[in-house]
Design a protein around this nucleic acid. Sequence first.
DNA 1: GTAGAAGCTAACATCGGTGTCAGGTTCAAG
DNA 2: CTTGAACCTGACACCGATGTTAGCTTCTAC
Lengths: 135, 135
Amino acid sequence: MRIGELARRTGVSERSLRYYEQQGLLVARRTDGGHREYPEAAVDRVVHIQELFAAGLHSRTIYKILPCMRDSDGSPSEIATPLLVEELTAERERIDRTINDLLRSREVLDEVIVTASGAPSQPARPAQPSAPEAA
Amino acid sequence: MRIGELARRTGVSERSLRYYEQQGLLVARRTDGGHREYPEAAVDRVVHIQELFAAGLHSRTIYKILPCMRDSDGSPSEIATPLLVEELTAERERIDRTINDLLRSREVLDEVIVTASGAPSQPARPAQPSAPEAA
DNA sequence: GTAGAAGCTAACATCGGTGTCAGGTTCAAG
DNA sequence: CTTGAACCTGACACCGATGTTAGCTTCTAC
């Protein structure tokens, strides 16, 4: 398939798909005229890439782990080196910390939401207009 | 306390603390000479701000919810408006999606790590992906 | 009063994935 | 052919929190 279809099917912009290729995350055959031609497996691969990006990994890291995942092509194809494993472990810890931050913040939001929903417009404390005007 | 100490105690750079003030997230009295002077409660507040930033909230959003949290000053001080509640609910959903992405990506990392650690040179046969002990 | 540490403001840089525009080429259907 | 959609490359812009530097002022301890 071509880039337009891949973009449509994955929800990722053509711009991003070209960027992925530039970063070595995605390969494409070319037609004689130079247009990209993707195999079906590209859809899965793009989805995977997106997930990893969404988790805050950098393209360089994604580049390194892609061949170690059983993925688009169905085959793991490579085993991570000890160095890479170390890096991924650090990345894993970062992810854990982020999850914890998210959970904490979600609690905070919930509390604010619940407080507001539970108590109708009753300024608990009309006092101190300590709200600094927006900068 | 002054900015240097606050920075040390919170692990947040002076640059960021000044930025927070500029965004209206943090207030400080000033000495005659113009130096910032923070109350003890600032430490907690900065920590809270950091958590919210880490969860991907923008300073504008943080600005709006800060007065609705029971926080540094100990008092909730304000109740969220319906509009804000709506916004926070959307934010909450974004956080949920992000958590899911992180969990998925963590699984992927775990699989790569386990495969590499467990099998010196063999096609993937991963044992139980290590228990999600984050949270 | 003086030296040096600590603060102040202001301005510019950075990172990295993505949006967008420009100017040109290819593809497919009439 | 011709035409219009789809694609190509390349370059620049953006966001937003944070780093960094510069040049100056204030504070504190001697």
